[in-house]
Write a protein that binds this DNA or RNA. Structure first.
Lengths: 186, 186
DNA sequence: ACCTGAACACCGTTCAAGT
DNA sequence: ACCTGAACACCGTTCAAGT
C-alpha cells in the first residue's frame, strides 16, 4: 500500500502528531499507539526515535520553549521603552499560555521535562530586555520577579480560576503586569 | 484471612493511600490497582466509592486545598500588620508547595480538578487578610496580584527552575514577596 | 449495600524477524 | 539502519455473582 519501510521524516511526523494531540485533547490523550496510528506506522516504530513516551513528550515541550521564546522576543521588539519591553514580553508569555494551554502545561510538567532548556530560553529572552540602568533591584531579582508574576498569571488563568478568567483582555493583563512590575522598575 | 467484606472506613483509607502514593512517588505513580492493593481490597472495590480515577485524585486535591487554606490562616494569624499578614500568607503558600510538591501540582492539574473549591479556599483565606484601607488598588486586584505572584514563585520553584532553587530560604521568599507586593500596598 | 473474580479493550515496552 | 508482528505485564472499567 502507501507504506514504505524507510521513512526519513518519521521523527518529525511523530513530533507533529504528538503536538497536535496535545493541543487538541490534552497531554492525557497522548498514547504511543495513537501517535503511531496517526503516522501510519507500527506501535514499535516510535521507539527507534524516542527512548520512551516521556522522551517524546519532552521533545514536544522543547519545541514549545523555542516557540515561546521567539514570540516573547517579537513582542518586545515592537515596544519602545525598557519598561514597555518587559511588559510586552510578559503579555506575550501569558498570551502564549492562553493560546496553547495544554502545551504550556506540558512544558512545565514536573515529571516530563528537563527544566534547563526552559529556564535558559525564558531567562535569555528576558535578560536581553533588561538594562540594569532601568531597575530598582539587581537584575537577577528583577528576572525572578517578572517571570514569577507572568507565570502565576498564566497558570492560574489556564487553570480556570474564576478570578483570572473573568476579564482576560490583553489590556487587563498589561495593567496587572505594569502595576506589579512598577515595584522593580526605577 | 484478615479481610472482611464490610469496611466502613474504606473510603478514607483509599484517600490516604492515594495521597501517600502521590507524595512518595508523584501522581503518575497512582494506579487504582496499587491503591487497592495498599488497602488489601480488590481492584473493583474503589469504584464503590469513587466514580473513576479522576474522581479519586480530585478528592485528594480537595483535601489539599483544605490543608493549604488552614496553613495560610495559621501563618497570617501569627503576623502583626496587614502587610505582614499578606506576606506571611504568601510565604505559607509557597512553603506548602515546597513541602508537598506533587500534591500541589495535582491540586492545580488542568484535567483532574474542579477549580471552584481551590479558588474558594485560597481567595477566602486571602480576602480575610486584606482590608481595603491598606491597599493602593481595589481589593480584587490586590487578591489577583498577590495570588499570581505566590503561585508563580511556587510552581517555578517546584518545577526545578534553577533561578528559583538557588536560594529558597524563607527569608529570600519573604523579601521577594514583600518587594513585589509593595506595589499594591499603601 | 459492599466486595470479589473474571473479563474486555487498551497501553508501554521489548525483541526476534523481516527489508 | 529502520520497521513489523507478536508477545508480556499492566492498567481502567464493568458486571455478574457472592455475603
Amino acid at each position: 500500500m502507501s507504506s514504505s519501510y524507510h521513512r526519513p521524516e518519521l521523527r518529525a511526523d511523530l513530533l507533529a502528531a504528538t503536538r497536535a494531540l496535545v493541543e487538541a485533547e490534552g497531554t492525557h490523550a497522548v498514547t504511543i499507539a495513537r501517535v503511531a496510528r496517526a503516522c501510519d506506522v507500527s506501535v514499535a516504530a516510535p521507539y527507534r526515535h524516542f527512548a520512551n513516551k516521556a522522551a517524546l513528550l519532552g521533545a514536544v515541550a522543547a519545541d514549545g520553549y523555542a516557540a515561546l521564546g521567539s514570540e516573547m522576543a517579537a513582542a518586545a521588539g515592537r515596544a519602545g521603552s525598557p519598561a514597555d519591553r518587559l511588559v510586552a514580553a510578559g503579555v506575550a508569555y501569558v498570551g502564549f499560555a492562553i493560546a496553547h494551554p495544554d502545551l504550556f502545561a506540558l512544558m512545565f510538567d514536573r515529571d516530563l521535562r528537563d527544566p534547563h532548556p526552559a529556564a535558559h530560553a525564558v531567562l535569555e529572552g528576558l535578560a536581553a530586555l533588561i538594562d540594569s540602568q532601568d531597575l530598582a533591584v539587581p537584575p537577577e531579582v528583577a528576572l525572578r520577579d517578572a517571570w514569577a508574576l507572568a507565570h502565576g498569571l498564566a497558570t492560574l488563568r489556564i487553570g480556570g480560576m474564576a478570578t483570572f478568567t473573568r476579564d482576560d483582555s490583553p489590556a487587563r493583563l498589561e495593567r496587572d503586569l505594569r502595576g506589579l512590575l512598577s515595584g522593580i522598575l526605577r
